[in-house]
Amino acid sequence: MFTLEALLAAAPAAGVVIALALGVLGGAAGAAVALAALAVAIAAVVVAPRVRLRRFRYEVRDDEIDLQRGIVVQTRTLVPMVRVQHVDVRRTVLSRMFGLAAVVFHTAAGANDIPALRDADAAAIRDRIADLARTPEVL
């Protein structure tokens, strides 16, 4: 699914860049830019999703949610369970095609998500987080 997502994102962007490069710049410079854009797009669609999948790790513990993600820059985010305000399961058209869903949990500072879980898993994780996140006495 990541591949398709990347394709949908990269294709129009690359298309625009290539069209501009060939149309506006023209000649050798235009061709070079177009080729570069194509290479970047291919990398984004073929390589990046695999890396993203491999690098994504999550763990739901009793007191916190641990997320590790990142393609180039790797980030590890820990969200204390008491700060979680609510949890949703998010299904998009794209994710439904693959039978996947994302679990989105919100704190006062914003939302974090665990993307691309199997539908049943997503519901289970959502329920687990909802149980663990007690109503905070302080926000």
Binding site: V72, T75, R76, P80, R83, A109, N112
Partner: peptide, 28 residues
Amino acid sequence: RLQEHGIRQTPLQRRIALADVGVAVGSR
């Protein structure tokens, strides 16, 4: 009361064993 805390590394940082620490506080 921290909403989030985390650690971040770019590939260059990983090579020289440096990292960033970040926190999210409040709504904003």
